[in-house]
Nucleic acid binder design. Structure first.
Length: 458
RNA sequence: GCCCUCAUCGUCUAUCGGUUAGGACAGGAGAUUCUCAAUCUUCAAAGCGGGGUUCGAUUCCCCGUGGGGGCGCCA
């Protein structure tokens, strides 16, 4: 059997969004699963809407997600160039073929593809005008996900605009032929276009590729499919918020596909091994950011320390307005703070707010938490006892600090928990945070004592 | 309006005619810890409606209904 060749063919006319990423992912997964070739082709025939910035974003986003392409821009390949704007001669050549066989004709300065069959006029309700219909036989789309789909293509359609540029349907098919694409994996929104494409393949005497029309991703709330303007639709947004690409890939792979059992968290190698079309659903899926966040947390928890710290550092650098300027001043200290917080946060983006008090005295104080902490017993007295003991305590290890605090508590006939609340509040201004002993150790004796005393004085 | 397509908990999904309809996220309760998070236990939560086929339908067929997509000299 010949090698599988699939392609992802985005157009650089807008930000790279989640739906595109998932289509790219499924193509890539299938290529990797079958040992085939993943081609990246840029469909930039709409000169008015293209932009280099968007093109850049496609490359960056794919690379960030780990979806490497075997052939395409910046990778090369035997059937390039891979940008349609550079393939004009080829489209002319194929157009000539259609003209020679009488399957293309000019009208109003544009070129139309001619369907075979008798013509008759009919009034089109949708377009409110009379159109020419063709008595044609339905095309059969043999879809790997949807099975046999029949659709009648009964109207000639434009393949070259009057400005001389070819349109999507034509270049898409010509390139799939010229690039030897064997499997077309794309969104279900193209299912209705498939009949046009198959007519073109046939007219050009080329074999029709296998199709796989994958379900669409619906917006998080409200009706309709997810589009570039929807909240949470952009890959770039998740990247900027510090989501892990492996978590996003894992989550996306499960939107419309499953391995047939309860497995959810899977390394990409495992997804590659298991991915195939019998496992792909036919129904559209709604994007659930909560579940993505959970998946992200699972990956975050097991992330190696170095990578976690590096990602945190990048995030702080990218969001200077969210953290004190001195946060990155001391790398060793920054590392300690981040590692203390790693098991506690759901996302990298929570870190600046979560760790603020480690880097500045200018941190918010949670009034409700203060009220709660001061409500039982005599917390100020407890803090004074603690303050006393911490003057001589060993701050080098969490266990030593724990012993110290427990000793203080035992003397008063109380438990660790009776001291934990007030102490945390005194040194961090909040009721939530990393384990108290770690908090003390990283903050250091001076800061801890200073804050407790300031709190007592207040 | 026409064409294509889909239909299981709020969400993502398992089930390839016979199951107490399973799992995950989110939600409720509890355990645990030093707060929070994690973890563990637990509760609640679904086969769109109507006809068939069958000994038996969530599963197969048909019709409705509902959702999604398409009907551009956009891709």
């Amino acid at each position: 059997m010949s090698q599988v060749r699939v392609r992802f063919a985005p157009s650089p006319t807008g930000f790279f969004h989640i739906g595109s990423a998932r289509t790219a992912l499924f193509n890539w997964l299938y290529a990797r699963h079958t040992g085939g070739v993943f081609v990246l082709r840029i469909e930039d025939t709409d000169q008015a809407r293209n932009s280099d910035e968007y093109l850049r974003l496609i490359y960056d986003s794919l690379r960030w997600l780990g979806l490497d392409w075997d052939e395409g821009p910046e990778a090369g390949g035997a059937v390039g160039p891979y940008r349609q704007s550079e393939r004009a001669a080829l489209y002319r050549e194929y157009l000539q073929k259609l003209k020679d066989s009488g399957r293309a004709y000019e009208k109003d300065g544009a070129v139309y593809f001619r369907l075979l069959g008798d013509r008759h006029e009919v009034f089109d309700e949708h377009r409110k005008k009379t159109v020419v219909k063709v008595r044609n036989t339905p095309v059969v789309i043999d879809d790997m996900i949807r099975g046999r789909v029949e659709r009648l293509e009964d109207e000639d359609f434009v393949i070259f605009r009057s400005d001389g540029n070819p349109v999507f349907h034509f270049v898409n098919v010509v390139d799939d032929i010229a690039m030897g694409i064997t499997h077309v994996i794309r969104g279900e929104d193209h299912l209705s276009n498939a009949s046009k494409h198959i007519e073109l393949f046939r007219a050009l005497g080329a074999p029709v590729p296998r199709y796989a029309h994958i379900p669409l991703i619906l917006k998080q709330s409200g009706p309709g499919k997810m589009s570039k303007r929807d909240k949470g639709a952009l890959v770039e947004e998740y990247r900027a918020r510090g989501f892990l690409p492996e978590a996003l890939v894992n989550f996306l792979s499960l939107l419309g596909w499953n391995p047939g059992d309860d497995r959810e968290k899977m390394a990409v190698a495992e997804v590659i091994r298991l991915f195939d079309f019998p496992g792909v659903n036919q129904s559209n899926a709604r994007f659930d950011e909560k579940k993505l966040a959970h998946m992200n947390m699972l990956y975050l928890l097991e992330l190696p320390a170095d990578r976690f710290v590096a990602l945190a550092g990048e995030h702080f650098a990218r969001r200077p307005e969210e953290a004190p300027a001195q946060a990155l001043a001391d790398p060793a200290y920054f590392r300690e703070v981040m590692l203390l917080s790693q098991p506690k946060v759901k996302g990298i983006d929570e870190l600046p707010a979560y760790t603020r008090y480690f880097f500045t005295e200018d941190y918010p104080v949670d009034a409700k938490a203060v009220e709660k902490a001061l409500s039982r017993g005599d917390p100020k007295a407890r803090l004074r006892e603690l303050d006393e003991a911490l003057r001589t305590a060993d701050f080098s290890s969490d266990t030593k600090l724990e012993e110290t605090i427990k000793a203080v508590a035992a003397k008063a006939g109380l438990g660790f928990g009776d001291y934990q609340g007030p102490a945390r509040l005194a040194v961090s201004g909040t009721g939530v945070g990393p384990n108290l002993t770690g908090l003390f150790r990283v903050l250091g004796r001076d800061r801890v004592l200073r804050r407790i005393e300031r709190f007592l004085g207040a």
